[in-house]
Amino acid sequence: MNQKQAAPAAPVTDRARRMSLLARATRQELAACLEAGPKMADVHPVRGPQTGLVMIRGRIGGGGNAFNLGEATVTRASIRLASGVIGHGQRLGTDQEATRLSAILDALAEEGDEAGLCRTLLQAIERRLAEEAGQRDAETQATRVDFFTLVRGDD
């Protein structure tokens, strides 16, 4: 059976959800969002952006003990705003600029996001992801086999 992590505390969930969505944002989405906001003169890099590897694990039989499946490229970045608030960004792949921008948005949200920049962006990303997933699912469902029983010829 699948192991489920214990449910984390609420504020952690919020940040985890935000960082997960930012990891899926395109560079264009992130850049457009930040352009609309105040000038970002005071962004200090704390770490990275840096590209490295994460070893992805699976579970034997789907739910047994873990094994190492193979690695993936991952890029991460941490930045500090003038206020001292630190933001983290991380995503699969090698896009360092997108990762840096997502770290800035993470920090802005941690600061309180008074302009609502991050909130609006997260909603937009969530909507896009849901639409894309819905479309993929509908395409897959169209390939579902509907079995029917043949009528016997012998009465």
Binding site: N2, Q3, Q5, Q50, T51, G52, L53, V54, M55, I56, R57, G58, R59, G62, G63, A66, N68, L69, E71, A72, T73, V74, R76, A133, R136, D137, T140, T143
Partner: peptide, 23 residues
């Protein structure tokens, strides 16, 4: 190429039971 990159760590095991199914 992979030998040129640092290892950040190990992921949590992926949950194939929660897969977004394509087939």
């Amino acid at each position: 190429y992979r030998t040129t990159l640092p290892r950040f760590g190990y992921s949590d095991p992926v949950d194939t039971g929660a897969m977004e199914i394509e087939r």
